[in-house]
Nucleic acid binder design. Structure first.
Lengths: 330, 330
DNA sequence: TTGTATGCGTTATCAC
DNA sequence: GTGATAACGCATACAA
């Protein structure tokens, strides 16, 4: 920077990073010069020298999904307070792109990674993550061979068991489950809990009604049609995400089947659509903001103290009963 | 990088940036060494040296709003193809934070800025943007004193006029308009078009029913209650965003007033809630993806050729009629 | 407490 | 076509 202030570059740097050993006189002289000359720091150069970019890399499947928008926003709140910026990338639920983004972010020297992987079992992707030097926070993923990562997970199982039991107790015998691929923790955990709820009842487990197809709306749309065309269709539907829900409701409308009257519907995560739908949709809810702020906290604690071991935070789910769940006979 | 490959650093750089003057022999030797030594490029250093970070800064009011999630996603699609990464910040619709973010991104040396400002009239904010060296793309904002910026705007006026005329033609005389602050282009343009539609009719302009209060759900919630408590309440409601709509629908439900039956409702931007609500909500729609991809295009064209003058892209709105708009008498 | 000097990992400008 | 070298702007170790 301009040495026209009559001071050395190092003094400027010291003032800017408020180093302890700097006189009040020097501080004011530098500050004055900065104001006068319109000095603009170059954080790129500082990052290179410091060996830390103060940037956090995000990889999420889809920013159009308000779930991830909320998570990222909450995480940013915590991170930006400590001077970190967010470099956000999306994978479109494609594990190859996950790997590409991980590499890209590594080369861009982000200090930490907060990621929601498309596939927690892909070896090449895991290897790519393992190459990363710095804290990794996984969002709701269980990755073998990545023991050093912190995890923010949701207890999907408990909500799913509650929901399933609730439907069974209402008299539903054939409940269908639509959720994402089994290559991610939430889906795997839901299917397991769903099966467990059936196991505890006297009813036969409806294997043919479990559809771990993916989280996109189109999957919900197609699966709904397909399920309801069966000779003995389900009388209740559990839907694994707000995105799937839009597809499901679209199909139900087209088929003239009324949620809450002709078929019971439970969704996951409360969004405006589930709350304000007519009838309102019963949901397995959770605190989405907490996911993001926990992720930020876990990242920051290892950033501030590299010796901190990775941690795991588990957030609860709760069943919110609404009018979309009724007994099968009226 | 490791000179153990027996080549000079400059050759490595040349291969990596596929410089024309490099022999096939050298290329393969370098590539081999890179693979063998597990070389990882440092994009921070490259950016510093090159004077270009290949990062694009985003400032949006709220990533939880799927509108901005969609815009950012579409923009990223275009940008990432050319090797640009997105640094995304949020302002919570606070002009002060807009200014902070603009400064931060400038210091982080982003190559371009894509911004949806909270207030297009704030001088300090405009000054902050003017300090930025590089292309700026404004999303739906008209900023005096920032002539060098490209703009992606929506023709909100035409959709609003259509919607208003439609309601008036159905026999509604008192239509209310809820939208964001007048410090942003969309709201200002909507109010103007709304007034124009009334002017063309014989009806008195219902000044008291125009509420440019803000885009957050709570404003919709409060304004709805307030409007409907009046001695002569509106028989139709035009709502300026999907966020406002959730607040409006919440209040209507609480008041026991049925959209499409007791009151006509028109919203802006088609989202799952408007499409799948019962009854489906009439909306003034637009191609949200096109906003993002246009923004990317405008940024890139000036990035690739700094002499390109700033451009303005105008995207259309269309009225999508659904069951929430009925005649006031049944 | 302050100034000087070095290096972070690249790219670009030279010579060769 | 290739190699040596300077410089990007800052932070820090060391000298003063």
């Amino acid at each position: 920077m301009a040495r026209r202030a009559g001071v050395a570059l190092s003094s400027v740097s010291r003032v800017l990073n408020d180093h302890p050993d700097v006189s009040e006189n020097m501080r004011s002289r530098v500050l004055e010069a900065i104001a006068e000359l319109g000095y603009e720091p170059n954080l790129l150069a500082a990052s290179l020298r410091r060996g830390s970019s103060r940037m956090i890399g995000f990889i999420v499947p889809d920013l159009r999904n308000p779930l991830f928008g909320s998570i990222v926003t909450a995480a940013q709140d915590g991170l930006s307070q400590q001077g970190y910026a967010a470099v956000i990338t999306t994978s479109s639920s494609d594990a190859d792109r996950d790997a590409d983004m991980a590499r890209l972010l590594r080369h861009r020297q982000v200090d930490a990674l907060i990621v929601s992987l498309a596939d927690q079992t892909r070896e090449d992707l895991i290897e790519e993550l393992r190459r990363f030097r710095g804290p990794i926070v996984l969002l709701d993923r269980e990755v073998d061979g990545l023991e050093d990562a912190s995890i923010v997970e949701t207890d999907h199982g408990s909500g799913m068991e509650q929901a399933t039991r609730h439907l069974l107790s209402l008299g539903h015998e054939r409940v269908a489950l639509l959720t994402g691929s089994l290559q991610v923790r939430p889906s795997a955990q839901r299917v397991q809990a769903f099966r467990e709820a059936y196991r505890q009842s006297a009813l036969p487990y409806p294997e043919d009604l479990v559809r771990p197809v993916g989280f996109a709306p189109e999957f919900g749309e197609r699966s709904t049609v397909e399920l309801l065309r069966r000779p003995s269709p389900p009388t209740a539907l559990i839907v694994g995400s707000n995105q799937l829900l839009t597809g499901v409701l679209r199909s139900l409308r087209r088929l003239g089947i009324r949620p809450g009257v002709d078929i019971a519907v439970v969704s996951c995560d409360d969004v405006p659509l589930s709350e304000l739908h007519n009838p309102p949709i019963t949901v397995i809810d959770r605190d989405v903001t907490e996911i993001g702020s926990s992720a930020a906290r876990l990242a920051l604690e290892r950033l501030n103290n590299p010796d901190t071991p990775p941690r795991r935070v588990v957030l609860p789910t709760t069943l919110v009963l609404r009018d979309s769940t009724h007994s099968p006979h009226g």
